[in-house]
Structure formats: C-alpha cells, structure tokens
C-alpha cells in the first residue's frame, strides 16, 4: 500500500469523507440512468455525477496532494473548470438531438399514416 502513512488527521478525515460521498453520488447518478423510465428523465441522472460527484473527488485529490507534498497542488482546478464549462454543452446538445429525432419520427409516422390513408381512399 503506497498511501502516505504520514498524512495528518486534519487532511485524512475530509479526504475520506469526500471520496465516500463522491463515490456514492456517482453510483446514484448511474443508478438513475439505468432505473428511470424514459429518455427525458434519464438525462437528469448523470447530471449529479458530473457536478457533485466529480467536484467531491477533485477536491479530495487537491487536499490529499497538498497535504502529502506540503505545497499547494491545485492543478485539479483545471479539470473542474473544464468539466463545469463542457458538461452543460454536452447535455444541451444531446437533449436537442433527442427532441429533433422524436419530432422527426412523429413527422414520418404522420406522413406514413396519411400516405396509406390516401392510397386506401384512391383504391
């Protein structure tokens, strides 16, 4: 086990707590992705993984490396900012794609129905 034995208590306790919380939150997010009924509900499941789960684990990593290397290690901030900026874009693009696909499918189904009706009346 290569976990530093010299980690002080003030750092070990919050790191452990944040790791457990982050793991649980990401598990709940994936559970929501599997369990919820339709697509528009499912898109809300991973949102909690992305925000709170990733946030907890990134903060835990910052505290851990700052304590073990006894200097300020905050380059995880880059990942946090990147994830916070890109996750909304991804959610919006998937949502728009889903809405357009559903609308198009309805449109095609309507056209098919009227087409067969027209053929039936012609015959």
């Amino acid at each position: 086990m290569s976990i530093a034995e010299t980690l002080p208590v003030w750092a070990a306790l919050p790191v452990a707590f944040l790791l457990v919380l982050g793991g649980l939150i990401s598990l709940i997010g994936a559970l929501g992705l599997l369990r919820l009924g339709n697509f528009y509900q499912r898109i809300h499941g991973p949102a909690i993984t992305v925000t709170l789960g990733a946030g907890c684990i990134l903060i835990a990593s910052m505290i851990y490396f700052t304590a073990t290397q006894s200097r300020l290690v905050i380059h995880e901030l880059l990942i946090s900012v990147f994830v916070l900026m890109t996750a909304p874009v991804v959610a919006m693009m998937i949502m728009r794609a889903a809405v357009y696909r559903d609308l198009r499918k309805e449109h095609l189904a309507d056209e098919e129905k009227t087409g067969t009706d027209g053929a039936a009346t012609d015959a």
Binding site: H44, P88, M92, R96, V99
Partner: peptide, 15 residues
C-alpha cells in the same frame, strides 16, 4: 444562463 441552468441537476435547457 444556459450553462448555469444545465449545471443545476433537474433542469435541462432545450432551446
């Protein structure tokens, strides 16, 4: 506004 709304779990901006 869209970033803030989409970051908040439970709401997704469509268009």
């Amino acid at each position: 506004l869209s970033c803030l709304i989409n970051s908040t779990p439970g709401t997704v901006w469509v268009e």
